[in-house]
């Protein structure tokens, strides 16, 4: 049995020379739900963009048993569902249906299968009747759910979310947390929402300045106020 996410000694610098990741190593088991926390600029988003090969640094990454290398990128992208922070970047079709159908259509599934996958994905996020709605007109919370549905329709093994609760009102946040809790997928979630971390993520990884500075059970790390404080975090 393989790990869902295996990252070994990953380093990455942007073209301007800024080192965003330094020797990052982490292993995540199938079914695990892991929170990735740390201050702005710690390298969380950069790390996430490596999981499906949008950025490529030095080091080794395997996702769902597949090495993230150029010939594998297509298959890797079908197995990792990446949900970006701003749903507006992810919803670029006129209707919700077309947005959710993008992944299966790209993969080349026949129309019947595409329709069924869209219906299933929208059902999972509780947006069954939104197929004909205009993505741009939805509320922030609704857009977030649709954005998640756009990757669920690809039936990924791993779900990766970048700051999913940012900018949501309390009710939308609450229902999103519930959704994340219920989804039976391996999950890596970058966030500043420490209350959410405490609530649904048994394991927590702290990043700062491109390094992993702590990796362990959330309960344990949350008690170490000194550690949290040193990396710009707050105990919930």
């Amino acid at each position: 049995m393989h790990h869902s996410i295996e990252i070994d000694h990953l380093s990455f610098s942007y073209p301007d020379g800024h080192a965003a990741l330094r020797q990052v190593t982490m292993h995540i088991q199938p079914g695990e739900k892991v929170a990735l926390v740390g201050p702005n600029g710690a390298g969380k988003s950069t790390l996430i963009l490596h999981l499906n090969g949008i950025l490529t640094g030095q080091g080794e990454i395997r996702v769902a048993g597949l090495p993230v290398t150029k010939p594998n990128l297509g298959k890797v992208r079908a197995r990792v569902g990446l949900v970006f922070q701003n749903p507006d970047d992810q919803l670029f079709s006129p209707t919700v249906y077309e947005d959710v159908a993008f992944g299966p259509l790209y993969q080349g599934f026949p129309p019947a299968e595409v329709r069924q996958r869209v219906a299933e994905a929208l059902t999972v996020v509780n947006m069954r009747n939104y197929e004909k709605r205009i993505s741009h007109h939805l509320s922030a919370g609704e857009k977030k759910r649709i954005a998640i549905a756009t990757v669920l329709s690809m039936k990924p093994e791993v779900l990766v979310l970048d700051e999913p609760t940012a900018g949501l009102d309390p009710r939308a946040r609450r229902s999103l947390i519930q959704l994340l809790q219920e989804l039976p997928l391996t999950m890596l979630v970058s966030t500043h929402d420490m209350h959410m971390v405490k609530e649904i993520f048994p394991r927590m990884i702290i990043m700062d300045e491109g390094r992993i500075v702590a990796d362990g059970p959330t309960d344990l790390l949350m008690q170490n106020e000194e550690l949290l404080c040193a990396h710009g975090l707050e105990k919930p």
Binding site: G74, K75, A78, L82, D89, F92, G103, T150, M154
Partner: peptide, 15 residues
């Protein structure tokens, strides 16, 4: 660029 990344992320190849 973020739009293109989001598109790329969903441009997967099925097994």
């Amino acid at each position: 660029i973020r739009l293109m990344r989001a598109r790329l992320s969903r441009s997967g190849v099925s097994d």
